[in-house]
């Protein structure tokens, strides 16, 4: 177990290394941070001065060394836009994003687990088709549109919760639901499929042929065996949230997280801050994947150690 864990952590660290290197290549080889941060009509002297100031005149390998060393020590560079360390800004924004993803996971699981189990229990009957309809609808609707519909109905018409921003605990409800519905739609179908497939296993068939009802077989036998799959599926939805939904939903609800920060960084042409945001979100994805593996292994000892 310990050796496996060490191997997994090393693999995750390797992915982080490759990913951050890719980000460096994207920002330093394909683009010119100095030119991007200045207005188009800026003179060549001004650009030269900015390049000098940012240390872009040095050999690329030296810049890369500094970038990598900065990452290890938690230094993500200095934001042009806010004139302060990017790591400081990210640290202020991170809690909001984590809160949003946490809330969304709660919504997702609360909706998806009962719906998925219901669909599997009544396979090919009306509830199964109804759950499929729910899933298809929410997988197909763009989450930012669901966000605006929720705002129109619950914040504008009914005035139950704040329209945007992070004010009071009620403000987290709408963004979490906007993210959670799409994830729940997918998760419910994955859970249904896992249970239906597990029900074909000899032990489940035997249990039912001995007279246990389908629902009893699901709750007392099948559920435990597919529980580790639930963890994986939920983890996948979390990585999806970190990389796509947070940016869009944080913009819709003016939610002060890393996603909104990345969006603003693009508007302000602040390459360093955007780079910091991308590195942190990619790091969260890698960490989530690692956490899934560890959790799976803890829940279900049969999971192979690879």
């Amino acid at each position: 177990m310990l050796r496996w864990l060490i191997r997994r952590v090393i693999a995750a660290a390797l992915v982080v290394f490759v990913v951050t290197s890719l980000v460096f290549v994207l920002t330093h080889v394909f683009t010119d941070p100095a030119a991007v941060s200045l207005p188009l009509e800026a003179s060549e002297e001004l650009r030269e001065a900015r390049r000098e100031q940012l240390g872009l005149k040095r050999p690329l390998i030296e810049q890369y060394g500094e970038f990598a060393f900065g990452l290890v020590t938690g230094d993500l560079g200095e934001s042009f836009w806010q004139q302060r360390p990017a790591s400081e800004i990210v640290r202020e924004r991170l809690p909001a994003t984590l809160k949003l993803v946490g809330g969304s996971v709660v919504v997702t699981v609360i909706l998806a687990v009962p719906l998925g189990m219901l669909a599997a229990w009544r396979e090919r009957k009306f509830p199964d088709h109804a759950v499929l309809g729910f899933s298809m609808a929410f997988i197909s609707a763009p989450p930012f549109w669901i966000g605006y519909l929720l705002i129109i109905v619950f914040a504008v018409q009914l005035d139950w919760v704040p329209t945007f921003g992070s004010r009071g605990w009620t403000s987290i409800i709408l963004p979490s639901v906007a993210v959670g519905l799409a994830s729940a739609g997918r998760l419910a179908q994955m859970i249904r499929r896992a249970i239906v497939e597990e029900l074909r296993q000899p032990y489940a068939v035997t249990a039912q042929s001995r007279g246990f009802s389908r629902s009893y077989t699901i709750t007392h036998h099948v559920f435990r065996n597919v529980a580790s799959n639930f963890v994986t599926f939920t983890g996948w939805e979390m990585t999806r949230m970190f990389t796509g939904y947070t940016v869009v939903i944080e913009v819709v609800f003016s939610w002060p997280g890393v996603g909104l920060m990345a969006f603003n960084a693009i508007e302000q042409k602040d390459l360093i801050l955007l780079q910091a945001g991308v590195v942190v979100l990619a790091g969260l994805v890698v960490f989530t994947n690692l956490a899934i593996d560890v959790l799976r292994r803890t829940i279900d000892p049969r999971v192979e150690l690879r």
Binding site: V15, L26, T31, V247, L271, A282, V286
Partner: peptide, 15 residues
């Protein structure tokens, strides 16, 4: 592990 959407944001800023 490295979703293209995030890299895409850098492309958007660059180009």
């Amino acid at each position: 592990a490295f979703p293209g959407v995030l890299a895409g944001l850098i492309f958007v800023l660059a180009f």
